[in-house]
Amino acid sequence: NPITQSQFVPLGEVLCCAISDMNTAQIVVTQESLLERLMKHYPGIAIPSEDILYTTLGTLIKERKIYHTGEGYFIVTP
């Protein structure tokens, strides 16, 4: 039996792509809307728990890849 190979993409990278897409579409990015986006637009991805999502978003903020305001999460533009 051949083994199907899937590509590994770090969660942080997927979140940045999803946040960027949602920002472009002017969709408010909350943790809930982000999870919905992942389920709908990234089939096959293991949906992270709320704790993992929260921690990963926190890491992306520390790395200055995203920022959070009262209006949601946004990509940091250079």
Rank of each mutant, 00 (worst) to 15 (best):
F74R: 12
M22H: 01
M39N: 11
I47Y: 05
P10E: 06
I27N: 02
Q7N: 10
E32C: 05
I47D: 05
F8Q: 11
P43T: 07
Q7Y: 15
L34F: 00
R37T: 08
A18W: 03
V28N: 09
V29D: 01
N1G: 05
T55K: 11
S33I: 07
F8M: 14
F8E: 13
G70C: 12
L15H: 00
L15T: 03
T69V: 03
I45C: 08
D21I: 05
F8W: 09
C16I: 15
R64A: 05
D21M: 05
L53M: 10
I47H: 05
N23S: 02
T69K: 09
E71L: 05
I45H: 07
H41D: 10
D51T: 08
V28R: 13
D21V: 03
C16T: 13
T59D: 07
L38S: 00
Y42I: 04
V28G: 06
E36C: 08
L15M: 07
T56I: 06
L57V: 03
D51K: 10
L11I: 09
T56V: 14
Y54M: 08
I47M: 14
I66W: 02
F8V: 09
T55L: 10
E50S: 10
A46Y: 06
L15Y: 01
I3T: 13
I52P: 02
I27E: 08
C16S: 06
Y42S: 11
L53I: 05
G12R: 15
Y73Q: 03
E71R: 09
I45N: 07
L38R: 02
A46T: 09
N1V: 05
I75W: 06
C17N: 15
M22K: 01
E50R: 15
A46L: 09
E36H: 06
P10L: 14
S6W: 04
P10Q: 10
E50N: 13
V28W: 03
I47F: 11
V29Y: 02
I66D: 01
A46R: 10
I61S: 05
P10H: 14
R37S: 06
G44S: 12
L53F: 03
D51V: 04
I52M: 14
Y67A: 08
T56S: 08
P43E: 07
Y73T: 01
I19P: 00
T69S: 13
T24C: 14
T30Y: 01
H68V: 08
V28E: 13
G70M: 05
I75T: 09
K40L: 09
G44Y: 06
T77M: 09
V28Y: 06
E32A: 11
Y54Q: 11
K65S: 02
I47Q: 10
Y54F: 13
E63L: 07
V76C: 12
A46S: 09
T24S: 12
P2R: 15
G70L: 11
P48C: 04
S49Y: 04
V29G: 01
T69L: 02
S6L: 08
P2M: 15
T56N: 05
I45M: 14
Q5H: 13
T69C: 09
C17E: 15
D51L: 04
E50H: 15
T77R: 13
I19C: 00
P78W: 02
P78V: 13
Y54L: 14
V28Q: 12
F74V: 11
I52F: 12
V14L: 14
A46I: 12
S33T: 13
V76A: 12
M39T: 11
Q5P: 10
I45S: 09
I61L: 12
M39V: 12
G58R: 14
R37I: 04
L53P: 00
T77H: 07
V29T: 03
L11T: 03
L15I: 15
D51I: 03
N1D: 14
I52T: 15
Q26P: 01
L34R: 01
P43H: 12
Y54I: 14
K65M: 08
G72V: 01
L53D: 00
P48M: 03
T59N: 07
L57W: 00
F74Y: 08
I61F: 02
L60E: 02
E71D: 15
F74P: 01
Y67L: 07
E71H: 05
T24V: 08
I52L: 10
L57M: 06
I52R: 09
E13A: 05
L38W: 01
Q7L: 10
M39D: 13
E50F: 11
M22Y: 00
E36K: 12
F8L: 10
T59P: 01
G70F: 07
S6H: 14
P2K: 12
I47P: 09
I66N: 02
S20P: 05
G72Q: 10
I3F: 10
S6P: 09
G44E: 11
D21R: 05
H41V: 07
N1A: 03
S33E: 02
S33Y: 02
E63T: 08
I3L: 12
Q31F: 10
L15N: 03
L57A: 01
T4P: 10
L38P: 01
K65W: 03
L34C: 00
Y73R: 01
C16N: 04
T4E: 06
D51S: 10
T55A: 11
I52V: 13
H68Q: 12
I45G: 06
F74D: 02
E32S: 09
V9R: 14
T30R: 04
E71F: 07
L15S: 01
M22P: 01
L53N: 01
A25T: 06
V9W: 14
E36T: 09
Q5C: 13
I75L: 14
Q5R: 10
Y67S: 07
I66C: 02
Y73I: 02
I66L: 06
T56E: 08
Q31I: 08
T77G: 12
P10N: 15
Q26V: 02
S49R: 05
G72C: 02
E13H: 05
L35M: 13
P10K: 14
T55C: 11
L53G: 00
I66Y: 01
S6A: 13
D21F: 05
P2W: 08
S33M: 03
C16L: 14
Q7P: 11
V14P: 01
D51C: 05
C16D: 00
I27G: 02
Y67K: 13
T55E: 11
N23W: 02
G44V: 04
G70Y: 12
I27A: 06
I61G: 02
Y73M: 03
P2I: 15
Y73A: 03
V76T: 08
T4R: 08
T24D: 13
V9D: 15
Q7I: 06
P48T: 03
L35C: 06
Y67E: 09
T30K: 02
V14K: 05
L38F: 04
Q31D: 05
V14M: 15
Q31R: 13
T77Y: 08
K40T: 15
N23A: 01
Q5M: 14
N23K: 01
L34Y: 01
T4H: 13
Y67C: 14
N1L: 04
Q31L: 11
V9N: 07
Y42L: 05
V14D: 01
V76I: 07
Y42G: 05
E13N: 05
S33C: 02
A18P: 01
I45V: 12
E63N: 07
Y67G: 06
D21Q: 05
Y67I: 15
R64T: 05
A46V: 12
P43S: 11
T24L: 10
E13V: 05
R37G: 03
Y67P: 00
R64W: 01
Q7D: 13
G58Y: 06
F74A: 11
A25E: 15
Q5N: 14
I75S: 12
E32R: 11
A18I: 15
D21G: 03
Q26E: 11
G58L: 11
F74S: 10
A18V: 13
E71P: 00
E50V: 11
M22I: 02
S33L: 04
S20F: 02
G44T: 10
L35R: 13
T30D: 05
D51N: 09
T55N: 10
I3M: 13
Q5F: 07
Q5S: 11
I3N: 13
T30L: 00
R37H: 15
T69I: 02
I3C: 06
Q31V: 14
G44Q: 14
S49C: 07
I3Q: 11
